[in-house]
Write a protein that binds this DNA or RNA. Structure first.
Lengths: 237, 237
DNA sequence: AAGGGGCTGCTTGTCGACTAGTTGACTTGT
DNA sequence: ACAAGTCAACTAGTCGACAAGCAGCCCCTT
């Protein structure tokens, strides 16, 4: 796994400063459990129980829950309870659209104005890392993320990745589910390579279409999942 | 101003259900005062004072402040105080990039797959509304927003507009500042018309370039503002 | 026996008091 | 007069108790 880049470290610091440690810890823990489906959709989350479990009062728990609700991971129903939200098909469609729109813009700009040598090197390194992770889905997922993150941050717009991360979070639950049915890593690596080549070759149109192909990969998995895990999904449109 | 569309009304309801009325009211009020610069950057916001002012305890105030902090309107410095954030140049760059990426994708899709007759009619109506508001900047701003919103919501991806709205919020403060120096409404209307024509003519490439021109308009204002109101801006990159 | 109304136990929402940490003014020593 | 250290007055963070509201159970009435 690549080392944290300097500005991303600063981001984390800034985020830590915004919320006290206990709130952050509770939020991170619950988020992790939700994304990894240890907490399944529709599970009830009682503020009292959680406060007991984390050894705090309800106040920090409540703040963490509010943040999770804002991120779409739980639904707070006043005077009734808080529940882990279902994986929303609508949210996935939106996430895909946003991701495609932004990442296409990114690679077009990268291809038209070029990337610095260190960045290109970092992308090559990430590719090599992906090859090494060919047989280890979890490791590959991390390397995959790192590649896209490097690309997006490479064009030098602060916090742009965090916009995608916000959308992506809904995906992460799905990705966890779909590890068994996912597109072979080798195919994804070839697509990454095509994107990188187009950037190096300074060909925006090629970069765009390569990214478009890559993004359509994600869509294929969605339908499979909807059929296979209907109780975890909500079909709200 | 056009009537609220059904799904946007549902959005509001859902949001209202997520947060109790008092929190919502405080959040909305403070947000409004920040966007309209009645509360200027670097102003101190004390939880105690606000609780007094709104006639509640600190708890609802605190929740509202947390949301404002997540939206980037205030900085909470633990044990020190909460302050209205400066208008971040970085955030504006990011907002512009995200907006351009998404709206271009939207109009391309709209042009390639076409829009329903009622939607086209609604867009025409919005254009007419803009013409009527030619001399009234505030009204024009609303009509302008309505046009873009109709476009974005038109391609039928739930909550997509709210992603833009989240980014746009930083812009709104700027837009309020820039009312005097803004591009003439007539020019913007012409650009809107060009976008709509390209969609009706089912010409994605034309729609994209028309939108690109339109988006670059926003950029022009930025530099002027940075020169004119340096104390309100932060140059963090 | 069936249906309706109240009660009980839960939930989140709100409150005021207390804790911990920071800042700057003021005091106290030199 | 000046500098260093102390203290008082803020801040946000946490806590436990209470209020308001919903839902289902149980009992009472018909």
């Amino acid at each position: 796994m690549p080392v944290l880049r300097r500005d991303s470290a600063r981001e984390l610091e800034a985020a830590a400063r915004r919320h006290p440690p206990s709130v952050r810890a509770i939020h991170a823990q619950l988020r992790h459990e939700i994304v990894t489906l240890r907490l399944r959709p529709a599970t009830r989350l009682s503020e009292n129980e959680l406060a007991l479990r984390f050894g705090t009062s309800r106040a920090p728990v409540r703040e963490a829950l509010i943040r999770l609700a804002d991120e779409g991971f739980i639904d707070i129903q006043p005077q009734r309870g808080s529940f882990v939200s279902r994986i929303s098909l609508g949210a996935m469609r939106r996430a895909r659209f946003v991701r495609e729109a932004i990442e296409i813009s990114v690679v077009r700009q990268a291809a038209s104005q070029g990337l610095s040598a260190p960045l290109l090197l970092q992308l090559e390194t990430s590719l090599a890392d992906q090859v090494r992770a060919l047989e280890d889905p979890e490791h590959f997922t991390l390397a995959d993320d790192a590649f896209h993150r490097t690309l997006v941050e490479g064009i030098g717009i602060a916090q742009l990745w965090s916009v995608l991360e916000r959308e992506k979070s809904q995906f992460d639950r799905v990705r966890f589910l779909s590890l068994p049915h996912t597109t072979p890593a080798a195919v994804l690596i070839d697509q990454h390579r095509a994107i990188l080549s187009a950037i190096i070759g300074r060909d925006p149109a090629a970069a765009e279409s390569a990214m478009r192909v890559h993004m359509s990969e994600v869509l294929k998995i969605t339908q499979t999942l909807l059929d296979r895990y209907p109780d975890l999904m909500s079909n709200d449109d």
